[in-house]
Design a protein around this nucleic acid. Structure first.
Lengths: 136, 136
DNA sequence: CGGCATCCCCCAGGATACTG
DNA sequence: CAGTATCCTGGGGGATGCCG
């Protein structure tokens, strides 16, 4: 019996060993910071959003990773999942208050990322070029 | 000839295809957000910091991952690496202006993570318990 | 002190196909 | 529409040992 596709339980991030004050926020940061989380949190912070809306608005995300990201955020209490029993099914995701506290900070990071994209791309090219042609 | 341990060049994050406005900031976010980056940026935003200082102050980081994280941040123009030619060697890392613009936002995220650690741990336990004993 | 090299495991994450 | 199931690869990331 292998762990199912939707089993997002995570021994590594189970936050054991509370007495050693382990579970440094590296774990928490990692969760927030995983490739798609920021965009999902920002998207759901304003209003309830449907699965397909997210899939369309987040460039490059796969169905699978979107599902996993949503499950993990839900597990961590950052997202609420609401199912409306109708045909066709309708599922909405909303950021919890806890997650909404993050909004401004994450938005600031996202803005920074957007502003600095060109700079970073240039820095990378520069770094790589120097590495190939060391200044001897 | 395999890619060396220090070769941090990264095709995936090379930011090609500028005409399609690809390289969505998912790439940039991922770099900033990778497990140790936030703590490294925050640590170097105040003053120059030595390698070993970082190794000691960042709980749980391995020598290898610290090195890689530093290289990548340097490559992206977020960190400056200064080598003082003396014995024993002395190497200092400092956040660039670009990275320092991130400071407040990242600090806010880190503070949030610290505040919500218990909440998140509880939410996880709760979620996992419900998953095992569905409400039928 | 500040790395680099090597080995190795595991999981993030993509592709594809199927379903209630 | 909103997922699951399955397969697969790359690289994140730990452990250990060596070096200028």
């Amino acid at each position: 019996m292998s762990r199912s596709y939707t089993d997002v339980s995570d021994k590594a991030a189970a936050c054991e060993a509370p007495e050693t004050d382990d579970c440094p926020f590296a774990d928490v940061l990692e969760r927030i910071a995983s490739k798609w989380s920021v965009q999902v949190i920002l998207a759901t912070a304003e209003r309830p959003v449907r699965f397909t809306e997210l899939e369309n608005s987040i460039e490059g995300v796969s169905r699978r990773m979107l599902t996993l990201t949503l499950r993990r955020l839900e597990r961590d209490g950052l997202l609420t999942r609401t199912v409306y029993p109708c045909v066709p099914p309708r599922v909405e995701y909303t950021a919890t208050d806890s997650a909404r506290e993050l909004r401004d900070a994450l938005q600031a990071v996202a803005d920074w990322a957007e502003r600095h994209r060109p700079t970073i791309a240039a820095a990378r090219r520069n770094f790589d070029a120097e590495a190939r042609n060391p200044v001897v």
